[in-house]
Amino acid sequence: MLELSDVTVAYGSIAALHGISLRVPEGKIVTLIGANGAGKSTTLRTISGLVKTRGGSIRYDGADITNRAPHAIVGRGLCHVPEGRMVFANLTVQENLRMGAYLQRDKAWISSQTEYVFNMFPRLREREKQAAGTLSGGEQQMLAIGRALLGRPKFLMLDEPSLGIAPLLVKAIFEKIVEINRDQGLTILLVEQNANLALDVSSYGYVLETGKVLLEGPSAELKANPEVQAAYLGA
């Protein structure tokens, strides 16, 4: 469904991605793991059009989306939950969700999807009228995911959903990610520092290091790989 071929990105004169190639098949959860600065977030930002490529191509859903404007890419159902959540702090939970549905015209679909999000994260319903900036980190993550689900995604990219969140909530949020993948048939590309967790929920994984794909393979195999264990799983 998504295919990157030899994508190169540089910030100024500093190269961030040295030719990344990866594939995410429809309906699967694929993960990118790696250390800080390996280029995981840059990869996602490049796919969603926030960062321009220097070379290579990105194909999504049968079309070339390389260097398209972010709003055009979202319009194709490719939604990105960015690192650091980026909820609109001064807007209410409800307004944040309405922003998620910015491109959606079908009122009935919006209200049923909002209901789906509220049922998935009941905390958000309780805090519907509250400014998003007053939510806890975990609740903000739920809101960021909920907001992306209102963009009618076919493909969801999640950047570090566990960052800065209480361990108990992390587990709950990952269960929801699997649930979204199952219920809504959503393809998911997950970036995560917590490699253990990411490999547990995904079917295929890529290990990034300094802007290159170091290793790839089915998640179970990566988890059993001694090299990966030593470097990323703390075993």
Binding site: H71, V74, P82
Partner: peptide, 22 residues
């Protein structure tokens, strides 16, 4: 809708672009 987009953009232009706002 545009007013909401204006407020969202003023808070975080990256996030508003990711919501599909031009």
């Amino acid at each position: 809708r545009l007013g909401l987009a204006m407020r969202a953009l003023s808070l975080n232009p990256t996030a508003s672009a990711l919501m599909g706002v031009n």
